[in-house]
């Protein structure tokens, strides 16, 4: 179920870089309504759970469902993660 008609991912899109303190986010439409997160991170053990929750919540709050997120993290802080997720989604809508 689409919450917002504008929130449709037309293309696979990315935002961010594989650099220290940054995260490379790739979003693609999936064939079901779930939001899934595939996370690789240098701080997976310390923050993995938190980061997955944050990414899922950010996608949901932006009004999307049925998104597969692939994230390659190098120690990004929360505001960066959020910004990269939103940027990837916005790029994917165009």
């Amino acid at each position: 179920m689409q919450l917002n008609k504008d929130c449709i991912l037309k293309n696979t899109a990315t935002a961010g870089f594989e650099e220290k303190n940054d995260i490379l986010i790739t979003v693609e439409a999936s064939n079901n309504d779930d939001i899934t997160v595939d996370l690789t991170s240098s701080v997976l053990r310390q923050y993995g759970r938190h980061m997955k929750e944050l990414i899922t919540a950010t996608v949901k709050e932006a009004g999307f469902t049925g998104i597969k997120v692939t994230a390659i993290d190098k120690g990004a802080w929360d505001y960066t993660i959020k910004a990269r997720v939103l940027a990837a989604l916005e790029r994917g809508m165009k």
């Binding site: 053990r45 923050y47 993995g48 759970r49 938190h50 929360d78």
Partner: peptide, 9 residues
């Protein structure tokens, strides 16, 4: 406050 409390290894 910046990064949250990490989980223990």
């Amino acid at each position: 406050e910046f990064v949250g409390k990490p989980e223990e290894v």
